[in-house]
């Protein structure tokens, strides 16, 4: 039996060591590779689109390297997981950097938390950094993870979904936001599963065992 292949897409935005390490740890029999090679991504059984940093730079690299084309193919054919800015890049547009057009896999926008985020009279700090709860909407990737488990977030912009049925995890920080989005074989999260200890590792394990059926 040949082992499965998981491609972590590398488009030059930050270190993918952690994502690679976490995926490899939960699935020792899967070959996890960090790559920008479209052919390797096409051959993979599971594909991960990570992302850190500013959306303008991420989208510029995604377009320059043709990652958007590969993602468009992948989203029709096999399990795809977006992480952090990887999720944001899947929305229609972001208001970061004066407004950036994104890939549009999901309808909806990416918005700034703002500098006057207040809850119960308390000024909330931005970025939203730390461990927050995620209210789950039934999906195979939550299997075995307690509802309202905490995951590690670090972001200043949040996803506002246009289609509520695609929200698979609800987060709250001053405002309600989409902590996870999903449709068919695509799942994407705002938090960092590779930094979210047991709950995060469980989600990655579920992803690598997932056949893409929601």
């Amino acid at each position: 039996m040949s082992s499965k292949l998981c491609a972590v897409i590398d488009y030059g935005m930050g270190n993918l060591h952690s994502a690679h390490g976490a995926l490899q740890t939960v699935a020792p029999d899967t070959k996890v590779v960090v790559t920008s090679d479209a052919d390797v991504i096409r051959k993979a059984d599971h594909v991960v689109l990570p992302g850190v940093g500013a959306i303008r730079d991420c989208m510029a690299e995604i377009r320059r390297q043709g990652i958007d084309q590969v993602v468009a193919e992948v989203r029709k054919s096999k399990p795809l997981l977006g992480i952090c800015v990887g999720l944001q890049a899947m929305m229609e547009r972001s208001e970061e950097n004066g407004g950036v057009e994104c890939m549009g896999l999901f309808p909806g926008e990416v918005k700034f938390f703002g500098n006057d985020l207040v809850e119960n009279g308390e000024q909330l700090k931005v970025p939203h950094m730390g461990w927050n709860r995620v209210e789950q909407v039934v999906h195979p990737l939550w299997a075995g993870i307690a509802d309202n488990s905490r995951f590690y977030f670090v972001h200043s912009y949040y996803v506002q979904a246009a289609n509520a049925a695609q929200v698979k995890g609800r987060g709250h920080y001053g405002v309600d936001f989409a902590a996870a989005m999903g449709e068919d074989n695509v799942f994407a999260v705002q938090f960092h599963p590779e930094k979210s200890h047991n709950a995060g590792l469980a989600l990655l394990k579920n992803f690598l065992a997932w056949d893409g059926q929601a």
Binding site: L124, G130, W131
Partner: peptide, 8 residues
Amino acid sequence: MALAKRII
């Protein structure tokens, strides 16, 4: 329900 305080 809020952001947890962290121990480092």
